[in-house]
Amino acid sequence: MNRWKIVRAFTLGPLLEATVPKPGNVNRHRDFEDLTLYNFLFADTAVVGVYYEAVKTAELLRKGVLSFNEAGLGELIKRAVAASREAQDANPNFGVVALSVPLVMGLALGRNMLDAREKARLLIEESTVRDSMELYRAIRLASPKGIPGGVKYDVYSEESFKELFRDGINLARLAEMSCERELIFCEWLNGYELSYSTFGRLYELIKELPLEEAVVRAFIELLSENLDTLIVRKAGVEEARLVREKARGVLSGELGIEEFDSFMYEKGDLRNPGSLADIMAVALSLLVLRGLRMEVRNGRAWGVIGRP
Rank of each mutant, 00 (worst) to 15 (best):
R62G: 14
G74E: 02
K5W: 07
V26P: 12
N272P: 08
L123V: 04
N170T: 07
G236D: 00
R140P: 02
K63W: 11
L123T: 05
V48I: 14
L66N: 05
E176Y: 01
L189G: 05
G256L: 09
Y156S: 07
E258C: 14
R248Q: 13
V232Q: 01
V101D: 07
A43L: 10
P21I: 09
Y196R: 12
L16F: 15
L227T: 10
P23C: 15
A214W: 03
H29F: 15
E259V: 15
V151I: 15
A277R: 05
N39H: 15
D34C: 04
R28C: 13
K22T: 15
V104I: 15
D31P: 10
G299E: 00
G74W: 01
V215Q: 04
G24S: 11
N91L: 03
G74L: 04
A301K: 04
E118K: 02
E118N: 02
A283E: 06
A82G: 11
N112M: 10
L60Y: 07
A175G: 02
L276R: 04
S275H: 07
N2S: 12
G74M: 00
M280C: 12
Y51R: 12
E176S: 03
C179Q: 09
E86S: 11
A87L: 06
L41Q: 13
R79T: 08
A71P: 10
P21M: 11
V7C: 10
E212L: 01
G95F: 03
M105Q: 04
G13Q: 11
V50E: 08
N298G: 13
A83G: 10
I169D: 00
I6D: 02
V288K: 00
G95Q: 02
K145I: 03
L183W: 03
L251Y: 02
E225T: 06
S100I: 11
A281V: 14
L211E: 00
M280H: 12
E70R: 06
A175E: 00
L202K: 04
Y153M: 05
E225N: 05
D31S: 12
A138F: 10
V250S: 07
A43N: 12
T57D: 05
S252D: 06
L205W: 06
E225Y: 06
I257T: 13
L99C: 07
D278R: 09
V288F: 01
L230E: 00
G110R: 01
S100W: 09
I257H: 11
Y156F: 15
N25Y: 13
L15I: 14
